[in-house]
Design a protein around this nucleic acid. Structure first.
Length: 509
RNA sequence: GCGCCCCUAGCUCAACUGGUUAGAGCAUCAGACUCUUAAUCUGCAGGUUCCGGGUUCGAGUCCCGGGGGGCGUACCA
């Protein structure tokens, strides 16, 4: 790869070649001709840019200089030339700082090289004394500099940034350089995830890793991505949920486990769906779904505080209060309130079909009572739940992994957390009776035979694990991307995923 | 999958109902300027108007097909 003068690049246009790209490439060659390396191997810095600011900002008067020398490095974000003086703003991972570059300090030769050869976008390392300009801007008075990496492509417009969504998602690196808000959103994401890890570690949870390649996709009703293992000659599936493996670990004696799991679902894309997304799943032995409610609301509030500084967020034009406790309502109550009908999975199928017809909710002949109730809830009620609400007690026949409700055999001890009409989390008192679990799997399998592609298959090893005894256990799954959307105040999941799924970029020869 | 909308210079945007040679700012390039903050000023250059067809005396603009994207919808425990 030595001395690739004109890198193959189908995105580059002739004009760019002649203008920015070519001009910058020429500068690289100029450096090489002088025996300098335009891509040196390393640079010793004494401070990050924020460390310089923290240490010196309130120590220097405007127009004054110190004798303190620092070596700093960063990307040139702006450059303002003023005769024999150049102001440049550089940025590193910690922050931004101004470079004060004068011919007097640098000497005529080096000063001319800085002006000619350092472009906006380049990485530079500099050494100099910490000072403040007459108007009080903390700066480093550059006495020597070195190009650390040449940027051949120009940065987007300095004021308007980059707004083309296609480019922002495909070339996220440019988005992150050019758009402060993109960085802010991902800072929220990383802070929230960090908070979740600490929160759970503080409560004795162990972070574990379970397989991504599954022989039997289970734990959620979703279409999987299929793949193939050549050496074993078996079909495998990317996981749609880590649930069944995590509960195997509880059987094995890890009584508080969690996984921040990338999961994959082969379904449509939307502002709330990406084919791969991040799910937090946790399991706690000896707990039930009421314990999961307390844990979930505290975990979300804690993540909100760490990522945003508070527990109220503004999202899609609404103020949302994430301060615990969240409301707890049953599904049938909420349907009564929003749709004005009394439905319950104990009612006969015919009555529930009539209720569907009255509410204009389409139904299918194969649906049983529980599915009909769920459908009525989803079509009439869910989108209207605005305040954070635990929607409790889902029908049994749509919840194959949840324990039957202690007071009602047609329901399960399951809740979903709904915020502003969107599902954030799903949890239950886990079904730990192996005989009943097998019956539920068999019911799912018959649905699958009737053509329901999302129904569970029978995972006999999972049943075997239950036969060794799963203690009473509460489990919860939370859509991390959706939580981040809420905390960051963005309405598209693509804004919170660094590299969201897009169609492959067209090749052009 | 379906519906609506969008795609113009490296970036951000213009171009009346179809009418000269598609404009501007930033960036680049050449020049002036030693305290700027999106620095300022002067000048040059920069275009396959996403791609391919069609209608027309004439297409960035209208029509057809394709590509990419956005939003909505469907699917999605």
């Amino acid at each position: 790869m030595a001395h690739t003068v004109r890198p193959t690049d189908h995105l580059r246009t002739e004009s760019l070649m002649e203008d920015e790209f070519g001009a910058r490439l020429a500068k690289v060659e100029r450096l090489r001709a002088r025996g300098e390396d335009p891509y040196p191997v390393r640079f010793d810095r004494t401070h990050t840019l924020d460390e310089v600011r923290e240490h010196w900002d309130d120590q220097i008067d405007p127009g004054a200089s110190t004798d303190d020398r620092v070596r700093i490095a960063g990307r040139v974000m702006l450059k303002r030339t003023q005769g024999r003086l150049v102001f440049a703003n550089v940025r590193d991972g910690s922050g931004e700082l101004q470079l004060f570059v004068s011919q007097g300090e640098l000497g005529a030769d080096a000063f001319a090289r800085f002006g000619d050869e350092i472009d906006r976008g380049d990485w530079v390392g500099v050494e100099g004394k910490v000072m403040k300009t007459k108007v009080g801007e903390l700066s480093v008075n550059v006495s020597s500099f070195i190009l650390l990496a040449k940027a051949l492509r120009p940065l987007p417009e300095k004021w308007h940034g980059l707004s083309d969504t296609d480019t922002r998602y495909r070339q996220r690196y440019v988005d992150l350089i050019a758009n402060d808000d993109a960085r802010r959103v991902f800072d929220v994401r990383f802070a929230a995830i960090d908070a979740i890890r600490r929160f759970l570690a503080d409560r004795g949870f162990v972070e574990v890793e379970t397989p991504v390649l599954h022989a039997i996709p289970g734990g959620a009703a979703a279409r999987p991505f299929a793949t193939h293992h050549n050496a074993l000659d078996v079909d495998l599936y990317l996981r749609v949920a880590p649930e069944l493996y995590l509960k195997r670990l509880v059987v094995g004696g890890y009584d508080k486990v969690f996984e921040l799991a990338r999961v994959f679902r082969n379904e449509g894309l939307s502002t709330r769906h990406n084919p791969e997304f991040t799910m937090l799943e946790l399991y706690e032995a000896f707990a039930d779904y009421f314990d999961m409610m307390r844990l979930t609301e505290e975990l979300i509030a804690d993540a909100a505080r760490h990522a945003t500084g508070g527990t109220t967020v503004e999202w899609d034009g609404a103020k949302i209060d994430l301060t615990p406790p969240f409301e707890r309502r049953t599904m049938v109550d909420l349907v009564r309130e929003h749709a004005g009908v009394d439905v319950h999975p104990s009612q006969p199928v015919e009555a529930l079909r009539a209720a569907c017809d009255a509410l204009n909710v389409p139904w299918e002949p194969s649906w049983r009572s529980g599915k009909l109730v769920l459908e009525i809830y989803e079509k009439t009620t869910e989108a209207n739940i605005l305040e954070p609400t635990f929607v409790c007690d889902y029908p049994r026949d749509v919840s194959p992994l949840a324990r039957t409700h202690r007071d009602d055999p047609t329901l399960t001890e399951r809740f979903e957390l709904i915020v502003h009409g969107r599902e954030l989390a799903n949890a239950f008192s886990e079904l730990n009776d192996p005989v009943e679990q097998l019956r539920r799997f068999e019911a799912q399998a018959s649905l699958k035979q009737l053509g329901d592609e999302e129904a569970h298959g029978i995972d006999v090893d999972y049943v075997r694990a239950l036969e060794f005894g799963l203690p009473p256990t509460g489990g919860m799954g939370l859509g991390v991307d959706r939580l981040v959307m809420l905390l960051a105040g963005v309405t598209s999941i693509r804004e919170v995923i660094l590299f969201p799924h897009l169609r492959p970029e067209a090749e052009r020869s």
